[in-house]
């Protein structure tokens, strides 16, 4: 079984990297994260310069004093992390849309399901290969932040925590995309759904004015956005892992269920 799963996983990875879309998505993500990180870095450096400047000090600020709130974490890594999460939301559906839907459209999934391979094995291979792609995307985009951290006092462990949050978030968004892709044979429908669902559960603060505080707080616990702030601050919380794990489990179950249904038809 493990050998079969490994073979399926390798096949999925090969398929992914045989198509130019994976490289385009990787390129877009790395370029976007690079440009935005650079912009935040420039702004942060300018801010430090303003506060550290003796001339400005004479004009009113305490000379050479930078407020505690102005630091690389608050001004650089947290805003960049928020941007990266939006970029993940923007590019991942482009990868996940074809994973199941393409095979369904071509009818190759039915061919696969007539063999001794079980649907959950196919679904697992597809999910794992997509998660590996998410990991790869984040690993490549981490080069710039890692270079900055190497010259600062933030610590690589802190950066690791930040990227653990991004990975959990990315994998959850990918799982939603894969579930959507498994439900339809149209890649466009899969992509639209994969954009719409994470966007809708991104944040429920828009409902707060019409909800009681307790319910609003409860809904906040279910929002994607509220689950990676602590990672960015260098703390890994088990409950955040449970949240992302829950989404992945649900996405996987829907994918398997959809394949089982296809086989039963």
């Amino acid at each position: 079984m493990t050998r079969r799963l490994w073979a399926l996983f390798r096949k999925e990875l090969r398929t992914l990297f045989a198509s130019p879309i994976a490289y385009i998505v990787l390129t877009a993500f790395v370029a976007l994260t690079g440009v935005y990180f650079f912009q935040h870095l420039l702004t942060y450096n300018r801010l430090l310069f303003v506060f550290q400047s003796e001339a400005i000090g004479a004009g009113g600020f305490d000379a050479g004093t930078v407020p505690l709130q102005v630091n690389s974490l608050n001004e650089l890594f947290i805003p960049a992390s928020n941007d990266f999460s939006l970029f993940l939301l923007a590019v991942l559906p482009l990868v996940t849309m074809r994973v199941f839907a393409e095979e369904r459209a071509h009818g190759t999934d039915e061919l696969l399901l007539t063999t001794s391979i079980r649907p959950w094995e196919v679904a697992l291979a597809k999910h794992l290969s997509t998660y590996v792609f998410v990991f790869l995307m984040l690993a490549v985009s981490a080069i710039y932040p890692a270079a900055v951290v190497a010259k600062s006092r933030l610590g690589m462990e802190h950066l690791l925590a930040l990227y653990m949050g991004q990975l959990g978030y990315g994998v959850a968004v990918a799982a939603i995309g894969l579930a959507c892709s498994s439900l339809t044979q149209s890649q466009i429908v899969a992509a639209v759904l994969a954009y719409a669902i994470p966007f809708m559960i991104l944040d429920f603060t828009w409902l707060h004015p019409v909800l009681s505080e307790g319910i609003a707080e409860l809904l906040n616990e279910l929002a994607l956005q509220s689950h990676f702030d602590s990672f960015a601050r260098g703390v890994i919380e088990l409950r955040r892992g449970i949240y992302f794990g829950g989404i992945v489990a649900l996405g996987f179950t829907i994918s398997v269920g959809s394949m089982e249904f296809t086989r039963a038809r």
């Binding site: 006092r153 933030l154 610590g155 462990e157 802190h158 690791l160 925590a161 601050r233 260098g234 703390v235 890994i236 919380e237 088990l238 409950r239």
Partner: peptide
């Protein structure tokens, strides 16, 4: 409340 503090 299981947390892992990875701040420097």
């Amino acid at each position: 409340d299981a947390t892992l503090d990875l701040t420097a």
